[in-house]
Design a protein around this nucleic acid. Structure first.
Lengths: 264, 264
DNA sequence: CGTAATCTTGAGTCCAATCAACCAATGTGG
DNA sequence: CCACATTGGTTGATTGGACTCAAGATTACG
């Protein structure tokens, strides 16, 4: 990837801009939603995140079969975990947004069983395995916060099994929208009921197990029902309660006990 | 549940019988597939598993919304993790067999976001949260083995997202069969290419996101293709390679590096 | 031995996939 | 600067895989 490409990406990549107002890294901010962390603990977390790199959209961070590496921390932008079947179909199994750690302990295994790649231009830092081990050995409270975030990641994956297994097209897409709204809200990336949904309909299809054509029709149906607007990858929820109801969305699996319901 | 029920279950519950030949608990045996554990470490693991209880089929161990408890260890029988939607549909998100720990660190969260229940009569032990914390603090190698098993559980859940998201009915059922075959093989519960699949077609439907009727037809198609036989809940794989091929089954996600390919 | 699950089969329907254009926006190279 | 390729979104027509409903056969169980 040439420097020019990176520079050009920077110019038109609103998702990759870390807000200047935030003293702490997105990771520290996210984890303090789970466990009440002290100033020095937040600083210790921040010290993990060194040398962030700006990556172009649709760049793989690591691929299935690769030797495991450190932990990727997403500081800005959207990334995803995915797998490609021999038949060529792709399934996206997770979205990662600012503050998310991808596969916190993956280095315990030898090889990756899935790929991680950016969806948009993204700012990503690689945390060395030893740094994670060292920090969790030294700070039980941070270890606890990291466990919490692992457990929530697992709960999200489980909910995605439910989503593709039991919900129909409208419900699936609506559920994904509800989930991403709440997660983005937690890290301060929503504006009222609006947020950037910087993924193509093809990518939504690979996420929900639908065809791109049907995602298109489904989005139109959701628009026609007065539940959302979506234009130029900017999504606005028009009626959160009705949307959540249609999606059978119950935010309990996100385990945001410390947030007093200003998200949903 | 009355003592009589338990006693009666014991009499006709082949799945709940721990093999007498095994000195170590199923948990210790399973984890030593991941990490080469010393005798005293295996004993330490065994000491976790106290006071096993025999539970009837279709008994919930814990329900969504309940306060989290210790860790459930399945010593014999089959259990599952599931969720029921407001519309009444059920999605099974994981199968647990002998040696599996259900939600190793769930006690870090306050409330369960899913249910865990038996499928067959099962022998289950509850490991107190403190015992897990204490043991992992004292034995880094056991902590590592437990992390490994957590990572594999996560990988399995991810593969289930792929399964319901991208594979058609035959592929889904075939994949589930391949996975359970390998997992049962690891804990010594297969007999050649045969094993007990003690779940109803309704439960297979809730697992694969299909209707029970369609699971029935799908099983018949697999039988007609000469891939399996299934009678009285006893499954035999007639041609593992063809079945795995049809299912696009790649066992890498099970991370059984220490097993030299005598499973598949 | 009777009742209840579970499994099986058939018929009809529907949701979502596929195939095939077409449009709009964007970017590229001559 | 414009022809042209590419990508993403949209629409229509058709097909097909899986669902639903309903009833009968089998098995398990009290």
């Amino acid at each position: 990837m040439s420097e020019t490409v990176i520079a050009r990406e920077r110019a038109r990549a609103p998702y990759a801009k870390p807000s200047p107002a935030q003293a702490k890294s997105a990771v520290a901010r996210k984890l303090s939603h789970y466990v009440d962390l002290r100033e020095e603990e937040l600083d210790a977390l921040d010290s993990l995140v060194q040398h962030p790199r700006l990556l172009a959209p649709h760049t793989d961070l690591i691929r299935e079969g690769d030797r495991t590496d450190g932990v990727f921390a997403i500081l800005a932008g959207w990334a995803c975990r995915y797998k490609v079947l021999p038949s060529g179909e792709r399934q996206i199994m997770a979205y990662f947004i600012a503050g998310d750690l991808c596969d916190q302990r993956i280095f315990i295994l030898r090889r990756m069983d899935h790929c991680i790649g950016t969806l948009t231009a993204s700012t990503v830092a690689v945390i060395p395995a030893e740094a994670v081990i060292d920090l969790t050995d030294r700070c039980p409270r941070i270890a606890r916060a990291l466990w919490w975030s692992t457990l929530v990641d697992e709960a999200i994956t489980r909910e995605w099994v439910v989503n593709v297994g039991q919900r129909d097209a409208k419900e699936r897409v609506a559920h994904l929208i509800c989930e991403m709204y709440v997660r983005l809200c937690v890290v301060g990336l929503t504006d009222g009921l609006s947020f950037d949904l910087p993924v193509s309909q093809m990518e939504l299809a690979d996420t929900t197990g639908l065809s791109a054509v049907h995602v298109n029709r489904t989005l139109q149906a959701l628009r026609a029902s007065g539940l959302i607007t979506l234009k130029n990858r900017r999504l606005t929820i028009l009626d959160f309660d009705r949307l959540a109801d249609k999606a059978m969305f119950n935010p309990d699996y996100l385990h945001l006990e410390r947030i007093e319901g200003h998200c949903c």
